[in-house]
Structures are given as structure tokens and as C-alpha cells.
Design a protein around this nucleic acid. Structure first.
Lengths: 309, 309
DNA sequence: GAAATCATATAAATATTATCTATTACTTTA
DNA sequence: TAAAGTAATAGATAATATTTATATGATTTC
């Protein structure tokens, strides 16, 4: 049977797509990798890498093997974790990435609660845009990503956190609610490109894909947009929880109703993390904490979850 | 880092609780095990086995390590499975154990469907009592057990399959339903000890734990009990699906209502299998097949699930 | 309580395996 | 076509695993 070391060598060659660099990453010489991987291939009866391409690629067999090897190595990592836990020297470093329009309220809401439920964990929270989160997860630079759904990527596990109503911020109208066709007559203020809330806005307000807001200021920051609305008129969209922490004048924040249906717009907040992870215990606590804190009375509302992709 | 071979040695000593027998099982000599396990213990920094007892036992660390090692070895087993799958020589042998009062109808109902959804799998179905199923799972003699719930054993994974109403078979009364307090006046006919449906009967009919039915015939077979009811009077309890395959006179099968509540008695059918298993794909198909076939319109009934433990 | 038995540990020799340095073979690029 | 880059191979060496033989230590037996 193929050894653990061989698995690590295979993974290193896969990551580096290069024997020499892979061997340096493993602190051995290049022939060692050549021989060990060749030995593994002989034993398994299939080639793992296709050396005829440059840079080298995985064979069909190799693709499937890598998935299994990754899982095995995550399982094996539980042994040093167990030892450190028994020694009392285990401190986990959990790296969480969150999109700005969520982190704006979520981090301040949850900070103290996480501190209690994760007493011995070093927590790093980073604001990133949705696509950056996915890349960082892939590169194993993050352990957990929190963003807006929906999302379907088979190599990542998804757990929904809560649904959040999206309201309109427009001070001019007096009524407490507003219909979608009323909004189309007003100027929308948008977040800059890359923010998924911008895409949701465009979809929801029916602005079309070719919308490039030349006449419009595009803020990177929701609070700036709110000020623009105050000064210049028009409207912008605000997630309900965000609105709460900003302590805005409630009379300016209106529930939106679709002209066609009885639905009100919302976004779904989801968590993403690798299928197998040694940090599951901590991730679970983070997720449960969020679910408990925000997942209260959504079910009674008739929420229509917006897509941002 | 501890090697795969060392893990297998550790597992073998744990299974055999004896170095010599363990070494034979691994086809090596006893000093090999002694040295390798000592080496692993040195490297991990904790003793795995307590040699001062006879037979030897696991240390606290060892207990935790064994759980991890088992998971690792299940993951590693996916590699030879992948190779066989690619060779086209992989045939899985799925061993399913079912309690008799379920298998009586479930096997004939599901057989053709399983044949379609699991074309390349060798399926062995065995009838066993509930406690025998648990032992067989523990000994890895079974891959999947189907029995009545509820059940909570942390080392096994549980997936509920469906709920099944339990009816009374008594030809004498004319009405279509019967109340629990009417049953207490009649003779119950019971399955022999070890059948969980017997325990459910005793609980449900309020017969008490000290009931030993000296005056009563205890059949190992439900059909025999039904015949006794026909000949001698009294009543027996029949799971609803069983009743269907026996093609009994429907007028003799009565829905039971609790005297106190509006509930009708039922049993929950569950599946049990190891937390980690290489045969998950097949197990899932078996489970989904059963759920699809029986999990239809339970939700409208007010079922009270009976405990058998 | 000494002898026998059983169970694991240790020692030294041997076999196996992994890794290294040095070199070769092959491919791509200039 | 030479130069550079990359992986494979050969042979030597180091590291590791396994074996046989024996020691140690604990129970059981007479």
C-alpha cells in the first residue's frame, strides 16, 4: 500500500505542477520524488501524472486519487491535534472571510459571543469580496467564508445561516412600504463592482446587464451611498441587519413589495468551508452562533431570495 | 509521523488485546509489533496500551487514537476501491441485517428495486433480532442494519426510514377501530423473547415487565400468532405493512386509538451503520429506496412512536 | 515457594526501503 | 543547434523494519 509520505509527495507535485519545486517543498531531492511517485504508480497500477504536458497534469486516475488523498491527510492531521489537545497546547487559528456588507454588522454582533464559545481559539476575520473568498478557500488561506447565497460548488460544503430582508432607503416618500415599480422611477445608488449586493441591486431593480451607471456615483461603502441619497435623492438598498447597526431613521427605510407577487426581497447568508476540515468543531460553533443569533422569525415573512451571480 | 502500518498494528493489538495473536493476524512476529508500537508511542508522546492489566487495555489517549485511526483506515480503503472500480473489477458485497417483522414485507417489496439501483452489488440479507444486529455491526459482520427505533448509540450512525402504524388483529369485534382500554380485557398473543415487537406489545398493552405469559402461547412467528387469534380468540398486534403482504381480511385489522389521547400506535423503522464506511454509496441507495417506497403519507396521521427498549 | 507457563521487551543480525549524489535522457526555448 | 530546463535512472549510502534469539516480569501450578 502507498505510504503517507508518498501521498504527501503526490500532493506536493500536484500543488506545484513541478517535480523540482515540489521536492524543495518536501525538503527532499528531486530524484526522491521521482522514485517514490513512480513506485506509487507501479503499485497502484495507474499513472497519477501525465508528464507529456507542460506543466504536467493529473491523469483521470490522478484526479480521483488526489481527492481521496486530501481526505486521508485531513484525517491524519487529527492525530497531532489530539496530542496537542491532551498536552493543553492546542490553539486553533480560525481564519474567517466575510463580505463587507455582512461583516459590517455581523462581527460586532457576534464578537463577544464567539469569544465565549471559542475561548482557546485565535480568530482572524478578514473582509473580502465573494469571488476573493472562493479563491482564498481554494488556496487554503481561509477556513470559513461567509457570504450571500445561493452557491453551488461541489468541492465546498455550504451551510445556510439566515435570510435577511433587503429594504429600500429613500427619505422622500412618506409611506412605510414601497412597490418595485415605484423604485424604477428613482435614481439607484450602487456599490462598486465586485460587491454582490451591487449585482443583486441591478437584478432586482431591473437595470439590465449593460448598466454602467456613468451618471451615478458608485460607492465602495454603503454608508457613503446612504449619504448620497440624503443629499441627492434617489434610493439605495440596505440589508435589514446593516440598517439596524447604523441606527438610521426608521421612517426612511421602507419595506419593498414586488408589484407582481406578495414577496419581499431578501438575501440568503451562507457559510462555505472545505468538505473535510480539521477545524470543524470551531466552524460548527461559529455557524451555530450565527444561526441562533439571526435565525429567529424569518419563516413568517414571504421572502424572495435574490441571486447575485 | 506514525505510519499506516503502525496504525494497522495498533488496531490489531486493540482487536486481539494480545501481542502474540495480534502479530499473527498481521503476519509478522511479536517483537515487530512490540517495537513498532513502542516506536509509535515514543513518537506520539503517550502510551497507547496499558500493559499492566491482563488482558491489556487502552489508555485514555489510546481510546481517542483508535477512533481516529479507524477513520483514517476507512479513508485509505478508498484507494484500492478506486483502482478496482477503474479496472471494472469492483464488486461490493453489502451485508444487510433486518429484524424479522420488518424483513417479512420489506425484502419482497424492495428486492426488484434494489436490483435496479444496485446492479453490480452482491447483496446479502439476513434476519436477526435487534440486539444481534448491534453486535454484528460492532463486529463488522454487517454493513447495514434495519430495525425499529428509537436508538441512540454514538458509535453508529442512524437514519430514519419511515413510520409504520401498528394495528390490532382481532376478528371478534365488528367496529373498524378499537380503544386501548378495550384491548386490556382481551388475551394478548405475543412473539417470543428477543423480538422488539414483543417488547412494544408489552409496553403498549400495559402488561408490565414481570409478565411471563405462562398461560399464553409465545410464537416466534407473527403468522402463527394470527392463527392462534383466529382459533382461540384474543388479539395480537401487527405492523401495517406486514398486514398488507399477508393479505389478511381487512375487517379483522383494526386501527387502535389511545383512550387518553388521539394518538395511534406506531413504530419507527430506522437504519444503522458505521459512522465511516466505504460502502456509503450503496447504503445510501438502499436507504433512499426504502424512504421513497414507504415514506408517503405518514405526516397526516397522529402517530405515537413506541419504544421497545 | 520453586518451577512452569505466559506475555511482552530487548539485543543483535539481517533484510528492506528511502534518500542522496551524480549522471543521463528528453523536451523546450533561444 | 546550443543552452536551459525538467524528469528519470544508477549506484552508493543511510535509515528503517523485521527476524531470531534471549531476557524480563508477572501469573499460575504443584
Amino acid at each position: 500500500m502507498i505510504s503517507i509520505q508518498q501521498m504527501q509527495y503526490i500532493l506536493s507535485v500536484n500543488d506545484n505542477r513541478h517535480y523540482q519545486r515540489a521536492s524543495e517543498a518536501c525538503f527532499v531531492t528531486q530524484p526522491t520524488l521521482s522514485m517514490q511517485i513512480k513506485k506509487a504508480e507501479d503499485e497502484l497500477g495507474y499513472l497519477i501524472f501525465d508528464r507529456s504536458t507542460n506543466p504536467l497534469t493529473l491523469t483521470v486516475f490522478g484526479e480521483k486519487l488526489i481527492v481521496i488523498i486530501r481526505d486521508i491527510l485531513v484525517e491524519i492531521e487529527k492525530i497531532p491535534k489530539l496530542i496537542k489537545t491532551m498536552n493543553g497546547t492546542y490553539t486553533e487559528h480560525l481564519r474567517v472571510g466575510i463580505i463587507p456588507t455582512i461583516s459590517a454588522y455581523l462581527v460586532s454582533d457576534m464578537f463577544d459571543k464567539w469569544k465565549i464559545s471559542l475561548p482557546n481559539i485565535q480568530l482572524t476575520i478578514e473582509e473580502m469580496k465573494s469571488d476573493e473568498l472562493l479563491i482564498a478557500l481554494e488556496r487554503k488561506e481561509l477556513d470559513l467564508a461567509i457570504m450571500a447565497g445561493p452557491h453551488n460548488q461541489t468541492n465546498l460544503r455550504t451551510i445556510p445561516l439566515f435570510k435577511e430582508e433587503i429594504k429600500a432607503y429613500l427619505p422622500t416618500v412618506l409611506s412605510e412600504t414601497i412597490l418595485t415599480n415605484e423604485l424604477t422611477e428613482l435614481h439607484p445608488w450602487l456599490l462598486s463592482k465586485g460587491n454582490c449586493l451591487r449585482t443583486q441591486m441591478i437584478h432586482f431593480c431591473g437595470l439590465g446587464n449593460d448598466f454602467n451607471g456613468g451618471w451615478n456615483y458608485e460607492g465602495g461603502n454603503l454608508e457613503l451611498l446612504l449619504r448620497m441619497v440624503d443629499v441627492k435623492g434617489g434610493y439605495t438598498l440596505v440589508p435589514n441587519e446593516y440598517l439596524r447597526v447604523l441606527k438610521l431613521d426608521e421612517s426612511k427605510c421602507k419595506r419593498i413589495y414586488s408589484t407582481e407577487s406578495k414577496e419581499i426581497p431578501a438575501r440568503e447568508i451562507i457559510s462555505l468551508f472545505p468538505n473535510r476540515t480539521i477545524k470543524w468543531d470551531s466552524i460548527e460553533k461559529v455557524i451555530r452562533g450565527i444561526q441562533l443569533n439571526y435565525g429567529k422569525d424569518d419563516s413568517d415573512k414571504n421572502l424572495q431570495v435574490l441571486n447575485w451571480q
